[in-house]
């Protein structure tokens, strides 16, 4: 799960991004700190929803690395509480969860991307950098979830084409992300610029967050019930 390798480590001269790590497993927080090393500045960490909200509001990090599953409401709760005082705060969801429902929920709550905990240090640092710039970070699995969620027809009168449907180009980009390609490679294959790839992904993120498309809320259910 993967590597959206970067436009890279932070551009020379700029500060590495600052992060707060929110996860209820101390071992995991320590692991992430060690892996990220010098690539980002870890301002602090927190293991409960309450601590997390306080730490984020106090420390004002560029990016919050947020566990999806935590006692007391999980990542979604942290996002909604922080949003009251810091609506501009950027979150990157980080989880072992494969559960599409959880992942989609945290992205819809406002996270700018989702990566799994098996991601390597450099890839994670890169994803953090991207999220700081306001880009979206989609792992192959999230791309698959989104394609699934936006698949299928819905009655024409219910469609808000701005939000409820992906353009063929967006689909194409997502498909390549699901196949494990990096933005750079996708740009090469589709003969577009990396910036355009990023724009497509951000647009998909916006649709994912704002679409009232029926399938998004009932998604996990229907997925299990398809026959």
């Amino acid at each position: 799960m993967s590597p959206q390798r970067p436009s890279g480590a932070p551009p020379p001269g700029s500060e590495p991004p600052s992060v707060v790590i929110v996860d209820d497993h101390a071992l995991f927080r320590a692991g992430v700190r060690a892996e990220l090393g010098e690539m980002v500045r870890v301002l602090g960490d927190a293991e409960t929803v309450e601590d997390a909200v306080r730490a984020i509001v106090d420390l004002e990090p560029d990016v919050v690395l947020l566990d999806v599953h935590m006692p007391g409401g999980g990542g979604v709760e942290v996002i909604s509480q922080v949003a009251k005082s810091r609506p501009q705060q950027r979150f990157l969801a980080l989880s072992v969860s494969d559960d599409a429902e959880d992942v989609i929920a945290v992205v819809r709550a406002g996270a700018r991307g989702y990566v799994t905990k098996t991601i390597t240090g450099p890839d994670l640092a890169d994803a953090v950098g991207r999220v700081r710039e306001g880009d979206a970070v989609f792992s192959p699995r999230l791309a698959g979830f989104v394609l699934d969620a936006f698949a299928g027809e819905i009655p024409a009168e219910e469609v808000d084409p701005e939000l409820d449907q992906l353009t063929p180009r967006e689909r194409e980009v997502l498909r390549h992300i699901a196949r494990g390609y990096m933005y750079k490679e996708i740009a090469l294959k589709l003969s577009i610029s990396v910036k355009t790839v990023e724009a497509h992904v951000s647009s998909v993120l916006r649709k994912l967050q704002l679409s009232s498309r029926h399938e998004l809320s009932r998604w996990a259910v229907t997925r299990r019930l398809v026959d």
């Binding site: 698959g144 699934d148 196949r179």
Partner: peptide, 8 residues
């Protein structure tokens, strides 16, 4: 092998 399957 990382598998992502959409649809059924």
């Amino acid at each position: 092998v990382e598998a992502v399957v959409v649809g059924d």
